[in-house]
Nucleic acid binder design. Structure first.
Length: 896
RNA sequence: GCCGACUUAGCUCAGUGGUAGAGCACUCGCUUCACACGCGAUAGGUCAGAAGUUCAAAUCUUCUAGUCGGCACCA
């Protein structure tokens, strides 16, 4: 069979995915072995508004590698896919579109109509990310695809909410919360990111003390909030201000009088040691207000403009305009003492980057202490989940849990799971699974539902079991998917959502299923741009995976991503992908060679066992194959994807292509059917091992191999459509690992390399054939004799002379290996100066090593304390070097 | 402020106690009948610096410097 000269990734990519998907090979049901162990992974659901980025591509690749590997190992695998409704992002996107298309705001069209439009948007555009997931080649079970707002998942959300409420773990309360004035919703602590303020200032304001001309100076970064001050606080031990405790301040611009109070919270050293207290606009001030029974005066609206309560002069002004105006007013009154530059950070809305306003507001919260204890208990007692890499994530996760605070779960949005709480006209609340149930609780009164929806992460927290059909009403035993696939085996995600998502899944899994959601958590690294910077939309330095797919192919991209060390950030290099593109082409061409010479041959895994007793090269490559299989399986078991990639790359390229194909080329081309079948079978095993990483290439090639059939499938997949996906992943057969063959082959390879070195260093054209003399002991001579054809071919020699000792004229180039002395007579071709330099260079290298060895071996401490085995190894090596050096010296002297 | 990670060849990165590795780039040679996305052969590192533990340190400990990250506080 003839195939194209170069691999075209696009053809293979277009060829196989639809067929795989349609034939059902991704679904766990493809496995006919009822006793098969299960293996399950749930995808971290990408946002429905999202499109694929490198972070996705990385984590998706790792999950797919594991899934495909385990499927090939005979597990009943489920790789569950789905999408997150992404409350804020989606609402913003549809709001923008509404404005553009209809020039309307959500408020103008009303909640019902707005939500309807979001669903329309979702149905029309929400499939983008799932199309991209198909492009990546992920072997996910599309028949179980989920969306966080599916009826079943929504039922799970209501169930969890009601249960937590009934247990008192969910409550409603008035607190200072993080308020995004642009998105007009509350945010949890985790959705707020501190960033350095560009030009932070500390304003020193003089507050007049009532009755008497004295002032007390307070320092503040937010002068506008003084309009809501209800006290000034000082430390009770601050001697400077003792006399003022209990005094009244005539608060400028407001006409109000506020007390001076004493509270431990105040640090005398900071600022002036006197703090203005605004309980409605600062969490710490709130606490102080609670302690001292202060009034909580709200002077700001939910869009961060000043409210009526701020006074007629300021009402309606934006917070920053109000700040300027307040400062100007103080200056006019002669009450502005000074303004200092002040380094500080400000909280920003993670999504829209607006400065978050601490605002007094009534919200729903989850009390986290008992939930936290469940997760901490699991870590303490079972060490779960296991983080990969363990450092630093285990500690960071644990520490975060230990300091966990209550979780604000309500959001002032329309897109999401509406809170299942209803109110009567008196404001009594009825929490229930449905409106009917709520009304029943309320004695049939008319009710209205809470306007707010739940934090998107509330539903994400249930993902590992809500996606498997849990709604709280099913007994687990009656739910086959939950029973089979929960807990999942491993979670693969980025470190930025360990708190937001991972910890919450652990807590809710333990609480509602009574079992951990997963054993292992792989935290992958961040893909940086080529300058080592984080990719971001604002910097516009993102690398689009789809562009890379287009340029180098999906498989090459997957190899690049899997080839990065687990958990470690790395700078993106197209050159790296290019090298894997080249590798794909190498595999393609190795297959091409085998196919061009495949007449009369077929893939037959049994031939590997028989082949092990064939030629040295056969035994050697089969040994290498089995060692590689062993190492690859181990690497995957321990999530060392990059190690597996390296092993496969070098086995296929170096061992198989550069050595084995070249060694057996003549036999293959000459039509030796046995060797042809053997090389096809080794190639086929290699393709299998490569398949989890490079699914398209390997399927494309595998299907072309003579002799492939369902017969190669694992026993659990006997009736499935023919695909490499369902062949058995190679496991090492220890009996086929042959150290003797590897050592012998090593001698042949070393000899060939030395001759090549001579040819290259002495500038001898490849066209010139010469005689190679090899001196070695009888045993080694036998090896060289048996493989003389291969040596002749690969060293481009026309004759080999074997003997105990070299017998060559002076005009010869010489070299030594661990096993042999080598000489190539070069009458008329040799440059004696060059040859002397070459020999001297080899002697020099050996002498450096010898010096080090002598140092160690003459150290009595080493000889006495190091393991005897180690000492013996060094002694043997020393003897070898001395032997080689002596030979090289003799050769060098002969040239003098 | 607290916690942590990283610093290895020109570049990007592997390598957790026993002779420093890969890919790319560089140098030299090659239309060798699978592949120039290739073949062959070289060159290139006092493993950030210092001290310590050890027979032995890139690897363990401490300190220093630089880079990056997380958390907390911030009147």
């Amino acid at each position: 069979m003839e195939i194209a000269k170069a691999y075209d990734p696009r053809t293979a990519e277009e060829h196989h995915y639809a067929r795989w998907e349609q034939s059902g090979v991704f679904a766990p049901e493809i496995n006919e072995d009822l006793g098969a162990e299960t293996y399950s992974i749930v995808i971290p659901p990408p946002n429905v508004t999202g499109s694929l980025h490198m972070g996705h591509a990385l984590q998706h690749t790792l999950m797919d590698v594991l899934t495909r590997w385990k499927r090939m190992c005979g597990y009943r695998t489920l790789f569950l896919v789905g999408v997150d409704h992404a409350g804020i992002s989606t609402q913003l996107m549809v709001t923008r579109q509404l404005k553009k298309d209809a020039h309307k705001t959500p408020q103008e069209i009303g909640r019902e109509e707005f939500v309807k439009r979001v669903w329309e948007w979702k149905n029309k555009y929400g499939g983008e990310i799932t199309r991209q997931i198909r492009r990546e080649g992920l072997s996910v079970d599309w028949s179980r695809e989920r969306f966080t707002m599916d009826p079943g998942l929504s039922a799970a959300v209501r169930e969890v909410f009601v249960r937590l409420y009934e247990e008192g773990w969910i409550y409603r309360g008035t607190r200072i919360v993080n308020w995004c004035p642009r998105d007009k919703t509350v945010l949890s602590d985790l959705e707020v990111k501190e960033e350095k303020a560009k030009d932070g200032k500390l304003y020193y304001l003089k507050y007049p003390i009532a009755g008497g001309g004295m002032t007390l100076t307070v320092a503040t970064t937010r002068p506008e909030t003084m309009l809501g001050d209800t006290a000034v606080a000082i430390n009770p031990d601050d001697e400077r201000y003792q006399h003022l405790i209990g005094a009244k301040i005539a608060l400028p611009l407001t006409g109000r009088e506020i007390p001076v109070i004493a509270d431990e919270y105040v640090e005398s050293e900071f600022g002036t040691g006197a703090v203005k207290i605004t309980p409605a606009h600062d969490p710490n001030d709130w606490e102080i207000g609670e302690r001292h029974g202060l009034e909580k005066l709200v002077v700001m609206n939910d869009d961060a403009t000043m409210s009526e309560a701020a006074g007629v002069v300021f009402a309606g002004l934006d917070r920053y305009e109000a700040r300027e105006k307040v400062v100007a007013a103080f200056e006019e009154l002669g009450l502005l003492e000074t303004i200092e530059d002040h380094e500080m950070t400000l909280p920003h809305c993670e999504r829209c980057k607006t400065v978050v306003e601490p605002l007094l507001s009534e919200q729903w919260f989850v009390k986290m202490d008992e939930m936290r204890d469940l997760a901490l208990g699991l870590m303490k007692e079972a060490g779960l989940p296991r983080f990969y890499p363990e450092v630093p994530h285990k500690k960071v996760y644990t520490t975060w849990l230990e300091n966990l605070r209550d979780w604000t779960i309500s959001r002032q949005l329309w897109w999401g799971h509406q809170i299942p709480a209803w109110y009567d006209d008196e404001g009594n609340v009825f929490v229930a699974r449905s409106e009917d149930a709520a009304r029943e609780k309320a004695g049939g009164k008319a009710l209205r539902q809470d306007e707010d929806v739940l934090d998107t992460w509330f539903s994400s927290a249930l993902w590992p079991f809500s996606t498997l059909g849990w709604t709280g009403t099913d007994e687990r035993a009656n739910n086959r998917d939950l029973e089979q696939f929960y807990p999942t085996n491993v979670l693969v995600t980025g470190r930025d959502i360990i708190f937001l998502w991972v910890s919450r899944m652990v807590m809710s899994g333990l609480k509602f299923i009574g079992e951990r959601p997963f054993d292992d958590v792989i935290i992958h690294g961040t893909v940086l741009d080529r300058n080592g910077q984080r990719m971001s939309k604002t910097k516009n330095n993102g690398i689009d995976p789809l562009d890379v797919f287009e340029k180098f192919g999906v498989d090459a991209t997957r190899m690049t991503l899997a080839g990065s060390a687990t958990g470690v950030d790395f700078a993106w290099r197209d050159e790296r992908v290019e090298s894997f593109r080249n590798f794909a082409n190498k595999v393609w061409n190795a297959t091409r060679f085998c196919l061009m010479n495949s007449e009369g041959a077929a893939v037959d895994p049994e031939s590997l066992k028989a082949g092990a007793t064939g030629s040295l090269a056969d035994g050697w490559i089969i040994s290498r194959l089995n060692k590689t299989a062993k190492a690859v399986n181990y690497a995957l078991e321990t999530y060392q994807f990059h190690e597996a990639v390296q092993l496969l790359y070098h086995f296929i390229w170096d061992d198989f292509c550069d050595w084995y194909i070249e060694l057996v080329k003549d036999e293959i081309v000459d039509g030796d059917a046995r060797t042809r079948s053997l090389i096809l079978s080794i190639l086929e095993q290699s393709l299998r091992m490569l398949h989890p990483f490079m699914p398209f290439l390997t399927e494309e090639l595998w299907q072309k191999l003579p002799g492939v059939s369902k017969g190669l499938h694992g026993s659990a997949y006997a009736s499935a459509e023919q695909t490499i996906m369902l062949t058995t992943f190679p496991k090492a057969d220890e009996s086929l690992i042959n150290e003797e063959a590897e050592t012998a082959m090593g001698a042949v390879i070393a000899a060939i390399s030395k001759v090549r070195n001579i040819r290259s260093e002495m500038n001898i054209s490849p066209a010139i054939r010469f005689t190679v003399h090899i001196a070695a002991d009888a045993e080694r001579q036998a090896i060289f004799r048996e493989n003389d054809a291969q040596i002749l071919k690969l060293a481009r020699a026309d004759k080999i002379v074997l003997g105990e000792k070299l017998d060559v004229p002076k005009a010869a180039a010489k070299a030594v290996t661990s096993d042999a002395a080598i000489a190539v007579p070069l009458e008329g071709l040799i440059d004696f100066d060059k040859e002397r330099a070459r020999l001297a260079n080899q002697i020099e290298k050996l002498s450096i090593e010898l010096g080090r060895l002598n140092g160690q071996l003459s150290n009595t401490n080493f000889v006495e304390k190091a393991p005897a085995e180690k000492v013996e190894t060094l002694r043997a090596r020393k003897a070898e070097i001395e032997q080689q050096t002596s030979t090289l010296r003799t050769n060098l002297e002969a040239l003098e």
